[in-house]
Design a protein around this nucleic acid. Structure first.
Length: 271
DNA sequence: AGTGCGGCCTGTCCGC
DNA sequence: TGCGGACAGGCCGCAC
């Protein structure tokens, strides 16, 4: 589900409710996420103060004075701020109890997400250590993509969706940015010129920034921390639009499996 | 080493 | 109306 814009939307919505707050503990209804939630998470969280809520790729980092809660929303996860006593629904697996009387509620039907705890530098955590640069940072450049892709035969779409290449670009925004850059998603990453990577870098940045500004993309079930859908879905140019006319040239949008993921492109505009 | 695939889960939708 | 199968926003771990 959530790609970078949805995770960032979640972060922005939650941060004002939790930064600076003392935590009272947690309620774990189902610890069986991608990795099991540690048994003593409630005790770990009890009494600590959240300093900052940050994002690294698709991970949310709740920095506290006692350690860091690392959250991933997987494919179907979301986090909401609800009032104490709010009824929980199926798949509301974990509540983090906030001192201001609110609750941070973790919901994830497919349980591909996770809630991890570390007392070390979370950026050095096994899951985060090898992540590529942030797409909206200065480290994400055409020169970087070009250098990293030399000799690589995998499709450029799979290349940019690999979090070791760059974080945050998931299935929707990969198709969208390749469309805007005029690059066919099945092209071997190693055969793309630096100039074309420059276009791709620019469009990845633009698409992600616009999607953040629109509160993310809701295809089915993404909701922000207030339970509201995002508005970017209506601006998707190719994703999910197989058979519809290309917004540039009118040719029917094609769909193709790349790396087991549905991929959408215009056969005329993208080479 | 890089690549491709199966698997993890539940929910939904589509065709029969 | 019911049922099986495909598919869904991610990503790990394992074969080759």
């Amino acid at each position: 589900m959530p790609e970078l814009p949805e995770v960032e939307t979640t972060r922005r919505g939650i941060a004002p409710h939790i930064e600076g707050q003392r935590l009272l503990g947690a309620v774990v209804r189902n610890p069986d996420l991608r990795w099991p939630v540690i048994d003593d998470l409630p005790q770990r969280l009890q009494g600590c103060t959240v300093r900052r809520l940050e994002r690294r790729g698709k991970y949310l980092l709740f920095y506290t004075d006692a350690g860091t809660l690392i959250a991933h929303l997987g494919m179907s996860g979301s986090m909401r701020i609800v009032c104490k006593g709010a009824e929980f629904k199926p798949h509301d697996h974990v509540d983090v109890l906030i001192g201001n009387g609110k609750i941070l509620r973790y919901h994830d039907p497919r349980r591909f997400g996770c809630l991890l705890w570390t007392t070390d530098d979370p950026l050095q955590h096994e899951r985060l250590r090898e992540l590529g640069p942030e797409p909206l940072s200065a480290a994400f450049t055409a020169a970087y993509l070009h250098r990293r892709s030399r000799g690589r035969k995998l499709a450029v779409k799979a290349f940019i969706m690999d979090a070791h290449t760059v974080v945050g670009v998931g299935n929707i925004y990969a198709s969208e940015s390749l469309f805007l850059a005029g690059i066919r998603p099945s092209l071997a990453a190693g055969r793309i010129s630096k100039v074309r990577y420059q276009r791709l870098v620019e469009h990845i940045r633009i698409v992600l920034a616009r999607a953040i500004a629109q509160g993310g993309t809701t295809l089915k079930d993404f909701v922000n921390s207030d339970g509201q859908a995002g508005y970017f879905a209506q601006q998707l140019k190719v994703y999910g639009r197989a058979g519809e006319p290309c917004p540039h040239c009118g040719s029917p949008i094609k769909q193709q499996l790349i790396g087991q993921r549905a991929s959408f492109y215009c056969p005329r505009c993208q080479h």
